[in-house]
Amino acid sequence: MIRFENVGMRYGNGPEVLRDVNFSLEPGSFHFLTGPSGAGKTSLLRLMYLSARPSRGLINLFGRDIATTPRQDLPALRRRIGVVFQEFRLLDHLSALDNVALPLRIAGVPESQIRTHVAELLSWVGLADYVQSRPATLSGGQQQRIAIARALISRPKLLLADEPTGNVDNAIAMRLLYLFEELNRMGTTVVIATHNEGLISRFDYPVLRLEDGELNMIGYGSTL
């Protein structure tokens, strides 16, 4: 699914924020990515969802070497990845329904199918009554759930979530994690970046830890 070999990354002429990152994720796996703030979690996720290019090393995604993949083929790869951004990146001028529907519209799914699927998913994340609400009128937790619904709507092969439980209480955080688990059971590879080690310890999934730009496998959540 994903393989990183000796990957390094720097912004402009600055120092390397990621150094010699090596790991591979099997299809259908579930991983936590943790580490202190500023360790490079978001940068690593950006490389995984093709929002940035590495300064060195090799990234293989869905069996394709990203360095040699033509630029026009990248959108199709991105459509197989669902991303929950730390800052949500919801479109303020669109309703909750239209925000969640975006990946389907981009993928060219017929409009007749979109409304049913989106309403169903919004109901699943507990926002059935907010279908026509604009993000600005919703709480941080509600916005986060819209962002998660948007990442899930196109049934991605790979789900990347950057601090998805940062704005919700523990009960909702657990509920969201169960949602990701369920998605994982259906075959989606999941990577959750969080610094909430208490939450990680409740699940028995492998944990990758980033510290000073270096990545290490440190064991399983329940053993931490």
Binding site: Y49, L50, S51, Q72, P75, A76, L77, R78, R79, R80, I81, V83, F85, R89, L91, L102, P103, I106, A107, R150
Partner: peptide, 14 residues
Amino acid sequence: RNVVEALHMMGATD
């Protein structure tokens, strides 16, 4: 730019 980048990350073509 934020909206454009969000669309880009969701797999929108140029």
